[in-house]
């Protein structure tokens, strides 16, 4: 009896392992394939059946970096993402604090609504307005459109963090004669530091990944990495090594950052929905 039960247990365990393996394979395969292909020559990439053992080459990376102003695009991406994140924090934190403290439901719903709006419904009016202001193609225009993604995100995540702080902290500060501002900067901000870090990183990732806004709002000199890589597509079917090398290069920073904040990632991506 106990024997058959044990056997059943073992079979169950094996099935479990297999399922786990399948899941892992499915999720890792495209990423692994991207990295592997980036070290292959064009002939190896085109061969059918696919080659597993091959002579790795870094030529693809050298080509990508030397044939294109890749560093310029990387700089653009960083520049835009840092500003879009920084400004989102500057504008977003007070709003989040306000909503959390005064339970301003209407504003919260407005922000949720902004999350629901399709990106393109910002893009069309902003594009027209920015055209009139001659801001299309500039960093300013680009950062501003990225803000429509990052700002609501920061606010929504930070509301949760501010709500977690007990009111007594604040009251104590007011009793000591602190003003609103000092209270906010001296007491609240340090308390939500972990939230600050994770929402900052998450917004950075979002801005880094943003594609549609950048295609329209950036020009040759200000385009970000996703746009630049999209433009490699002409070689579609021609230079897979170069494409995957470029893809690897833009994904790498994001993956590293994501690992840093993995704990907060899910709640951030669902826009704090899980907390509520």
């Amino acid at each position: 009896m106990s024997g058959s039960r044990n056997a059943k247990q073992i079979i169950k365990n094996i099935i479990f392992r297999i399922l786990l393996g399948v899941v892992l394979l499915f999720y890792m395969f495209p990423l692994l394939w991207m990295v592997i292909s980036s070290f292959k020559t064009q002939a190896d990439n085109m061969s059918v059946p696919p080659v597993i053992i091959f002579q790795p080459t870094v030529q693809n990376y050298i080509n990508v970096i030397s044939d294109n102003p890749f560093l310029q695009y990387t700089f653009n991406s960083f520049y835009v993402a840092i500003f879009a994140t920084g400004l989102a924090l500057v504008f977003g934190l007070p709003v989040a604090y306000y909503i959390a403290r005064f339970k301003c439901k209407k504003l919260a719903i407005a922000i949720l609504l902004s999350r629901m709006m399709p990106g393109i419904s910002y893009l069309v009016p902003w594009f027209i307005l920015f055209s009139r202001l001659r801001l299309v193609g500039t960093y300013t225009g680009l950062i501003f459109t990225h803000l429509t993604v990052t700002l609501p995100l920061v606010i929504w995540i930070m509301i949760g963090f501010f709500e977690d702080i007990p009111k007594s902290y604040e009251e104590a500060a007011f009793l000591d004669g602190a003003s609103d501002l000092t209270c906010f900067f001296r007491i609240m901000l340090p308390l939500v530091k972990p939230g600050l870090v994770s929402s900052g990183i998450l917004t950075f990732i979002q801005s880094w990944n943003t594609f549609m806004y950048s295609v329209v709002m950036a020009n040759h000199n200000t385009q970000t990495l996703p746009v630049a890589v999209f433009n490699f597509l002409s070689y579609g079917g021609i230079d897979w090594g170069g494409l995957t090398a470029a893809a690897t290069l833009i994904t790498l920073p994001v993956l590293v950052l994501a690992l840093l904040i993995q704990r907060h990632l899910v709640s951030g991506l669902t826009f704090g929905g899980i907390k509520g």
């Binding site: 920015f130 055209s131 040759h220």
Partner: peptide
Amino acid sequence: VNLSILPEDQHRQRLAVSFASGRGD
């Protein structure tokens, strides 16, 4: 000379968007 060579489809789209936006780039 700041040369930018794009695949045909992207080239056409970027030109149109660029001129529509009035940016002199």
